[in-house]
């Protein structure tokens, strides 16, 4: 019997429906089942950090503490400090230096204009450009607002290193996978603060939990002029700076 167009479409539709239904059923069966982590409920947190530029003295304690806590290889940084020197009105041409990431402090030099320190770290963006480009799902935004790398899953393809507008990622020469700030996930999930905040002598850095209504971060955000880095990129950055100068990139 010669098959008409109507029959063909009918049959093709039937097959298509069958396969998609089978696929949906498979997804359901194959997906892993949830297992609760003991003592830490990540759905009750939304982590962030506040940095008060007017308090940073460039001592480098945070950089050293981070390296010691996380075993950051020499020459790489999960957090670092930049010294800005903005001569006169040329806001778009500041002098920036960060000798060894600020780890050994900053040798004094006469300022040409206004000079200040800017500590930097992963901004744990809510809409991370680095997460969007990962081809395998090795980096992701967690339910508690962190951007984390799965060391075992990372291919080391470096897409995310290029995608991060803040330069917060590096390739760990030991593992050949990408590495970055975890906001000390192993500490904050145990009720401690991050290593950099613990070591900061002036309280310039503060860990913040935006889902905790009693966290002083809410007062801090409400009563100060706050800015994030590169707001024009709409990354949903969660590192909030007080007193951030317009020349900071």
């Amino acid at each position: 019997m010669p098959q008409g167009r109507r029959d063909f479409l009918e049959q093709a539709g039937r097959w298509l429906f069958l396969t998609s239904a089978a696929q949906a059923a498979l997804e359901f069966v194959v997906a892993g089942n949830a297992s609760a982590a003991p003592n830490y409920n990540m759905h009750t947190h939304w982590w962030a950090m506040t940095i008060d530029i007017t308090k940073c003295i460039g001592c480098g304690n945070c950089v050293r503490a981070c390296a010691e806590e996380n075993g950051v290889p020499k020459g790489f940084f999960r957090t670092w400090i930049e010294r800005y020197d903005v001569p006169g009105w040329e806001m778009d041409r500041p002098d920036v230096d960060a000798p060894n990431g600020g780890m050994d402090g900053f040798p004094d030099k006469p300022a040409k204009g206004k000079s200040f320190f800017v500590p930097k770290l992963c901004n744990h963006c809510a809409h991370s450009p680095c997460v969007q480009v990962c081809p395998v799902g090795a980096t992701f935004e967690t339910p508690d607002g962190l951007v984390i790398v799965d060391e075992q899953y990372c291919l080391g393809c470096r897409y995310c290193v290029q995608a991060c507008p803040y330069g917060c990622r590096y390739i760990n020469p030991k593992t050949n996978t990408v590495d970055k700030c975890t906001l000390c996930y192993h500490r904050i999930s145990k009720g401690l603060t991050t290593a950099c905040c613990e070591a900061c002598p002036t309280g310039c850095r503060q860990l913040a939990d935006l889902k905790n209504p009693k966290d002083p971060v809410h007062d801090f955000l409400r009563t100060n002029s706050i800015q994030v880095l590169k707001p024009q990129m709409a990354t949903g950055s969660k590192v909030y700076y007080r007193g951030l100068d317009g020349s900071v990139r």
Partner: peptide, 22 residues
Amino acid sequence: FGQYGHYRGAALEENRQRAVSF
């Protein structure tokens, strides 16, 4: 994989289990 999204859910627990030095 897929427990919380397009990634390995166990990676979170592995990250949390590291020892602290401070």
